[in-house]
Computed example of a mutant assay.
Amino acid sequence: MSPRTRELLHLLAVVNARLSEDVSLGTLAGWAHRSRFDLHRRLRQLTGETPKAYAMRVRLARAAGELVASGRPVSVIAARHGFRSHEVFSRAFTRHFGRSPRSYRVRGLHVDVPGAAAVHALAAGSAAPCLGLYRVSLTERKAAVSLDVSVRELPTIHALMMRRRVTRDEIATALGEILPTVFEFVQREGLAIAGPPFARYPEMGMGSLVIEGGITIVEPASVELPEGVEAIEIPAGRAATAIHRGPYETLQESYQGIEKWMREQGLSAAGAPWETYLTDPGEQPDPALWETEIVQPVR
C-alpha cells in the first residue's frame, strides 16, 4: 500500500470515530497537514464521494439505525450524530430517505423478531463507512498464511443484491456502485439488516465473472423492489468456511486453499461461493488486520 493510501485510511478511521464533531474539509486538511484541494481530490478518488457527502451519508445511516433501535428523542439522536439542530437533521434525513425521522421511526422495520432492530443498527452503522471501500486494490501482497477451514451448517439466508458481469480488476468498482445502492434501499424501506455486506460469485470464468453484491436481511423483502435490485434466498446446508486475513489482493489464494482442503476431504462444491466483509476498511486502516469470511457450500 502506498504511504498516501495508508494515510487516507487512517484519516477515515479518525473521521468515523469523530463524526459527532466538526469533520469539515478544512478540519480534515488540518489533521492531515494537506491542502484542502489535495485532500478533497484524494478522498474522492478513494471513496467515490466528496468528504462532505461521505460524512453526511455515514451520519444519516447511523442515525437511521438508532431511530429504529432506540427510544431516544430525535433531537438527541441528531446531536449524537453531529447535526447542529433538530431542524438541520430533519431536512437532511428527509432528503436522503424520503420521509421525516419521526415518520421513519413510526414505520419501523418490516420484521417482528426480538433483537432484530439492535442487530440492524449495528450492521448498518458498521457497514456505512466502507460501502465504497470493499475490495479496494492496495497494490500490496503479503505472504500467504495458513487457513483454518471447517464445515458448518448454515441457516437459510435472505438477501437483496445487484448482479454484474465484470473482470477481476473491476470487482472493487462494481461493489462500490452496487453496495451503496442496495444498502440505501434497505435502510430507506425499513428492511432489517442481518449482517455485513457480501459478494457472491455464481459464475467464474477465465476472462470474466458474474458478481452479486448485496445485503443480508432478516426476512424476505415484503416491498416492491426497484429495477436492478433482486431478492435471493440461499438455502440452508453445509458449507466449508474460513477467515481470510489480509488485503483483498490475496483472497484468491484463500479460495484456492479452501478448494485444496475440500479435495483432501472428499468434498465438492454445491453452489456459488461468497465472501462476507467482517472488517470495515473505513474504521480499520491496517490491511493486515482485515478479515473476510469465505463460504463455499459443499455436498
Rank of each mutant, 00 (worst) to 15 (best):
M204T: 15
E233G: 04
I258C: 02
I234L: 12
V106N: 00
H10P: 02
P202Q: 12
Q284S: 14
L138W: 12
D112I: 11
V68S: 01
L133H: 11
A128G: 10
A143E: 15
F83Q: 02
R44D: 00
A127T: 03
V218A: 02
H244T: 01
A117V: 08
Y255E: 06
E184S: 12
E7T: 12
A79T: 06
P247T: 13
V149R: 05
A13C: 04
A159T: 08
Y255T: 02
F183L: 07
T50S: 07
R62F: 03
G65Y: 09
A92T: 05
E177D: 14
R164W: 08
A270Y: 06
R72F: 08
L67F: 01
I232K: 04
A143W: 12
R57A: 15
R107F: 13
A174S: 11
T250D: 13
H86G: 06
I294F: 03
Q296G: 09
V166Q: 12
A194F: 04
I211E: 08
L11R: 15
M161N: 10
R164H: 10
R44P: 01
E177A: 11
S103I: 06
V106D: 03
S24R: 11
I232N: 13
D286P: 04
R165E: 06
M161Y: 02
L12S: 08
G71D: 15
W290K: 11
